[in-house]
Amino acid sequence: MGDTGAQAEVLPTTDDSGVVGTLTVEQQSALNTFRDKVKDVIRPEHDDRFLLKWLKARKFDLNKSEEMLRNSLSWREKNNVDTILEDFESPEVIKKYFTGGTSGFDKEGCPIWVDPLGRLDFKGLCACARKIDLIKHKVYRLELYTKIMKEQSKKLGKVIDRETIIYDMEKVGMRHLWKPGIDTFNQFVTLVEDNYPERLKFIFIVNAPKIFPVIWKLVRPFVAEETRKKIKVFGTTNYKDTLLEHIDADQLPAAYGGTLVDKFGDPRCGDMVGNTV
């Protein structure tokens, strides 16, 4: 866990059980039953791999999985999520100051989301933008990445439906403990957990400050157990080799051990991943 004092339970693992090709007899039976229970709402593109995400997210509890899927499909319809890439454009202040963006793809072809969270002035952003637009911006980016993953799947000839995330917490301090900001971040976490199950491959948290255990205590209740298993927290050292195990150097910003810089020569790739001032 590096030198942050965070709990040792959050170690990165991937669980490939409960997916197509690895199902037990009981899991296959559950999938067959689940498919029949939700046949009135699923679409032709909702294949077994899609259905298994919801089952796995609720540990193959059929009733909970059905409720989760139906609630999510209702949420998508209510909020016009299927057309958000065409219908919504984030306000300029959000596009300019909200951190996060892609640096490329990991070694398996999954997109990488790099987010210099410590450089986000969320309080200032909330003063200049409506909360509903912040949430829509988040959904927009999630749907954009879904589109990117579909394009990658076609390009590589294999299913790409997970992403690798790097959260850079350099400069995170007491100002980031602003309660409305924490509450909104947790709302983002809940939105992802409820509507984009089994999407995460890994989360690498780097440059975690000494107050990280305090922040983690506030966020942890909103993070699913399976998600927590995919998180690795580092202090300011010893993370670059780990990142390079999963990401080729030319896809990783130079500030994190790779060779990638943006068009301005910034080793943090600020032009690609957001405000790095």
Rank of each mutant, 00 (worst) to 15 (best):
residue 211 I to K: 06
residue 185 F to S: 11
residue 161 D to G: 02
residue 199 R to L: 09
residue 173 G to E: 09
residue 151 E to S: 04
residue 235 G to Y: 03
residue 192 V to F: 08
residue 188 F to G: 07
residue 206 V to E: 10
residue 234 F to S: 08
residue 224 A to T: 10
residue 149 M to G: 01
residue 203 I to H: 08
residue 238 N to L: 12
residue 139 V to A: 00
residue 148 I to Q: 05
residue 228 R to D: 02
residue 162 R to D: 06
residue 184 T to S: 12
residue 156 L to P: 07
residue 187 Q to P: 06
residue 172 V to P: 08
residue 180 P to Q: 04
residue 174 M to L: 10
residue 178 W to I: 15
residue 215 I to V: 12
residue 231 I to C: 05
residue 170 E to K: 11
residue 233 V to T: 06
residue 193 E to V: 00
residue 223 V to K: 02
residue 227 T to K: 04
residue 233 V to F: 03
residue 211 I to G: 01
residue 223 V to A: 06
residue 165 I to Q: 10
residue 212 F to N: 09
residue 241 D to T: 15
residue 228 R to S: 03
residue 217 K to C: 12
residue 184 T to A: 14
residue 203 I to F: 11
residue 243 L to H: 04
residue 150 K to E: 07
residue 178 W to L: 12
residue 153 S to P: 08
residue 214 V to Y: 06
residue 198 E to C: 12
residue 184 T to F: 15
residue 164 T to C: 03
residue 141 R to F: 08
residue 173 G to C: 09
residue 217 K to G: 14
residue 206 V to F: 05
residue 203 I to N: 04
residue 166 I to G: 00
residue 209 P to I: 10
residue 172 V to E: 08
residue 137 H to C: 00
residue 225 E to V: 08
residue 225 E to C: 03
residue 152 Q to G: 06
residue 182 I to F: 07
residue 140 Y to V: 03
residue 204 F to H: 13
residue 144 L to F: 05
residue 191 L to K: 11
residue 227 T to Y: 02
residue 160 I to L: 00
residue 230 K to G: 04
residue 214 V to K: 06
residue 188 F to H: 12
residue 155 K to T: 09
residue 232 K to L: 11
residue 180 P to F: 00
residue 145 Y to F: 04
residue 221 P to Q: 05
residue 241 D to Y: 01
residue 164 T to H: 01
residue 176 H to L: 11
residue 203 I to C: 10
residue 198 E to P: 11
residue 141 R to L: 03
residue 170 E to R: 13
residue 141 R to C: 05
residue 156 L to R: 00
residue 167 Y to W: 05
residue 206 V to L: 04
residue 194 D to M: 09
residue 217 K to L: 10
residue 210 K to Q: 13
residue 182 I to S: 15
residue 231 I to H: 03
residue 218 L to M: 10
residue 141 R to T: 06
residue 227 T to I: 02
residue 203 I to K: 01
residue 195 N to M: 10
residue 238 N to M: 09
residue 151 E to F: 04
residue 194 D to R: 07
residue 186 N to E: 00
residue 158 K to L: 09
